[in-house]
């Protein structure tokens, strides 16, 4: 950056004007009575005056819009306290005129740009997620929008989830939750059921309630109406 004392060639751009998103503190008066507002402000500032010194603020007038507000006085009151009001937003015409007169800007936040709705598209076919390593205690794997295939075992303390089906080609010892977004057609398939918990579309069963007949063998688990069924393969 050239220092100020250096002569600057004419062609050198003298400034840049950019649209920037800045985070500014916003002061939102909820009442129009200055004295009351000032008193509360003083109380708040007393605990951390440094935080407020030279703090640029935007006055958001939405809550008091249409009510008689002596904006010039409010601005003075803030300036006396070391705050630097820089603009107003959401005021009515009178407020905006008063703001300009007091040396403040008028900030147009405008409405959200209207977005054209995306044309509805068929979700692309999802090949699902294939895991070749054991899923260890403390690990969690989620196949979003599709099936989860685990070619190894799922340890106790591990959790596998899918929006679609779950296949475990080892022993399922941890938790398995299929159809987690509510797909009640999702199923769980495993070589060996020793699970801590199984769930389909939110209907779950804990280890204690999985009958011995279902344990230790290849099974599929599916929803039959409201009931979870464990069926030998």
């Amino acid at each position: 950056m050239p220092s100020i004392s250096q002569p600057i060639a004419d062609a050198t751009p003298a400034f840049e004007l950019k649209g920037r998103m800045l985070t500014l503190s916003v002061l939102r008066p909820l009442i129009t009575d200055h004295n009351q507002l000032a008193a509360q402000l003083d109380a708040r500032m007393a605990s951390m005056p440094e935080l407020f010194r030279h703090l640029p603020v935007v006055l958001d007038l939405e809550a008091v819009r249409g009510q008689p507000l002596a904006l010039a006085e409010l601005v003075d009151c803030l300036r006396q306290r070391g705050l630097i009001p820089v603009g107003v937003r959401a005021g009515d015409e009178a407020d905006e005129a008063a703001a300009v007169a007091a040396g403040l800007g008028v900030i147009q936040l405008g409405a959200e740009p209207t977005r054209r709705p995306e044309p509805a598209r068929e979700p692309p076919p999802n090949a699902g997620l294939v895991i070749t390593q054991p899923v260890r205690s403390g690990q969690q794997i989620y196949a979003r929008d599709g099936d989860l295939v685990v070619l190894a075992s799922v340890s106790p303390g591990a959790e596998v989830l899918a929006d679609g089906h779950i296949h475990v080609y080892g022993t399922l010892r941890g938790r398995a939750l299929a159809g987690v977004q509510g797909n009640s057609n999702a199923r769980i398939f495993c070589q060996n059921l020793e699970a801590e918990l199984i769930s389909i579309a939110g209907v779950y069963r804990i280890s204690e309630n999985i009958q011995e007949t279902g344990r230790g063998r290849p099974v599929q688990i599916f929803l039959d109406g409201e009931a979870l069924r464990v069926q030998s393969l």
Partner: peptide
């Protein structure tokens, strides 16, 4: 064994 399993996951 459970803790070992956990550590193996972390090593990964």
């Amino acid at each position: 064994v459970r803790d070992s399993d956990r550590i193996i996951g972390i090593l990964g």
